[in-house]
């Protein structure tokens, strides 16, 4: 039953990646820009939850609330301060502020919390374990699946069925036309950063319950989630989820054969291979980032 057990772990990892991946794909969809700070926003979510549970003594649901709201505000602040002033400055220039913000967040968190590896213990009601077809599934893992499913469903509804979602999709489709039509494009972009970052905050909390958190985890988390996005087809929300689940399983299978310390590298390899073989991704439709000549 080892195979099934690895599958469970893989899907859990994948569910977490999915929450981060969706934020990349949303921002890419609307700005055609890879938001390098996104993994670090998730990292901040972990530490916000850590503070809420540890220092403030709040329960898990309240901690999730703190992380989600805190990250949404952080994401909007990053867009407003580091990206918006550079919106007309070409695609590469904002990457400079992005890597700056990324390193800044890492080190501010390290200054406050220290560099030590941390974990937070799940609440008692998630401590149990059930056996599904011979594989052990913990309460935390069930919570991760449930939270991811609900979050992605809410996001799909927001984007697909609401006025805000229509404005976001219109802005992503044709920015200049959206401006000319009077769509509040700045607000739509801020909303995308808020939504993506909120999900990253949720991922940060769930990550903390399942593995360990450190101030430097953002980069490898970000690369893996981005690899998932490219694997699924950038710009597509269902693609991001599928890519994340596949990558999560791949990483856990790889870690089983090669040892845990290699699992970070698998994301990079999947990213490189996808770009070589099928840059538009598994479910990708258009604009896989290829230079059109």
């Amino acid at each position: 039953m080892i195979a099934l057990q690895i599958l469970v772990y893989g899907l859990v990892t994948g569910a977490n990646y999915a929450l981060v991946a969706v934020g990349y794909t949303l921002v890419y969809g609307i700005l055609k820009f890879i938001n390098f700070t996104h993994g670090d926003v998730a990292m901040v979510g972990s530490f916000l939850a850590l503070t809420a549970i540890g220092a403030m003594g709040l329960g898990l649901p309240a901690a999730v609330g703190v992380a989600v709201v805190g990250c949404a505000i952080l994401g909007m602040a990053i867009e407003r301060v580091a990206y918006r002033p550079l919106r007309r400055a070409g695609r590469l220039t904002p990457l400079l502020t992005a890597i700056g913000v990324s390193l800044l967040l890492e080190n501010l968190v390290q200054l406050v919390f220290g560099a030590a590896i941390r974990t937070f213990s799940p609440p008692p009601y998630l401590a149990g374990t059930v056996v599904v077809a011979g594989a052990y599934v913990t309460g935390v893992q069930i919570a991760i699946f449930a939270a991811t499913a609900v979050a992605v469903a809410v996001l799909a509804w927001l984007i697909g069925r609401t006025a805000l979602g229509r404005q976001i999709r219109a802005t992503a489709d044709n920015f200049d036309l959206a401006v000319a039509m009077g769509v509040p494009t700045d607000r739509a972009i801020l909303a995308v950063f808020a939504l993506g970052s909120a999900l990253a905050g949720l991922a940060g909390v769930l990550f903390g319950m399942e593995t360990t958190v450190t101030p430097t985890m953002g980069i490898s988390l970000g690369i893996s989630a981005f690899a998932a996005v490219v694997l699924g087809g950038i710009g597509s929300v269902p693609g991001a989820v599928v890519g994340a689940l596949v990558l999560g399983v791949a990483e856990n299978v790889g870690a089983w054969f090669l040892g845990g310390s290699w699992s970070d590298g698998i994301g990079v390899l999947v990213l490189a291979l996808t770009l070589l073989v099928r840059p538009e991704g598994l479910l990708g439709r258009r604009d896989p980032g290829a230079v059109k000549l």
């Binding site: 006025a163 229509r166 044709n174 039509m181 769509v183």
Partner: peptide, 20 residues
């Protein structure tokens, strides 16, 4: 071409309804 390719016809009308 002044349409948003991935929005449906109805969504175009709804988009304007929300703005004007």
């Amino acid at each position: 071409r002044n349409v948003f390719p991935s929005l449906t016809v109805l969504e175009h009308l709804e988009l304007m309804r929300d703005l004007a």
